[in-house]
Amino acid sequence: MEAIEVTDLRKSYGDTNAVDGVTFTVHAGQTFGIVGHNGAGKTTTVECLLGLKRPDGGTLRVLGRDPARERRALAQRIGAQLQESALPDRIKVVEALRLFASFYHRPADWRQVMERWSLSPLARRAYGDLSGGQKQRLMLALALVGDPEVVVLDELTTGLDPVARRETWRLVGDLKRSGTTVVLVSHYFDETEALCDKVAVFARGRVKAMGTPDEIIARTGTASLEEAYFALEGTTR
C-alpha cells in the first residue's frame, strides 16, 4: 500500500519555482528521506503534504486523501515536527504532552509516550529550561502523541550537538521498527543515509535522484550519499 503519492507537484512563490514537478511514492512502513540543500524545495513539499500550503499543480495523496481538501481528517492520522517550531517557555513537558493528546480522537497514552522517549525525568521541567536535544525529543514525542500512521520530521537534528544527534537517530530507528511511515527531511546526508529505506535527492525544486541510498551511491560510482549528491549536481550544471 502507498502511504504517500506525489505526482508532478508544483508550487511557486512569485517568480521562484520552489517545487518544480516533483514525483515520488512512499510505501506504508517505509522511512523516506528528502535530502538536499537549503532552498531545494524540501520544506515546501512537506508543507503541501501536511495541507499547510496549497499546490499550484500536480496531485497529492496522503493515506488516499487530498491534504489541501481534507487537512482536518488527515491531521488525526499524521504527526509532524516542523522546522524551528517552538512552545511557550513556561509550559511544562507533562502539560504539553497532555495538551496535545487532547487534540486527537484516539491519541496514544501520553504517559507511555513520555516514558518511551525518556521524558519522564523531565516531566515537571519548563520547555524554556530544556536543552536543544531535550526540546527536540519533546517535539518528536508531540508528533507521536496522536498515534499517527505517518510522521513527518523536518530538520529534526539541525542545531543539535553530535551526541544529541546520535540519540535522535536512535529514536527514529525505534520509530521505524514500530512500523510507522516516516518522512525525514534533512540537509545532512549522513543521517539520511543511515536512517532511510528510500531517498529522494532534491535540488532546485526537482528530484535529482531516487532510490535506496546504496542504489544512488552505486549509480554515481561514489562512496557516500553526500559525494553522490555533488556528483549529480556536477553533471547537471
Binding site: R71, A75, I78, L82, S85, A86, L87, F100, F103, Y104
Partner: peptide, 17 residues
Amino acid sequence: AAYRERKVLKRLATTPV
C-alpha cells in the same frame, strides 16, 4: 505575536485543532 513568530500557530495547524 510570539505564538506566530515561534511557529506555535503553524504547529497547531498540523493537528486536528
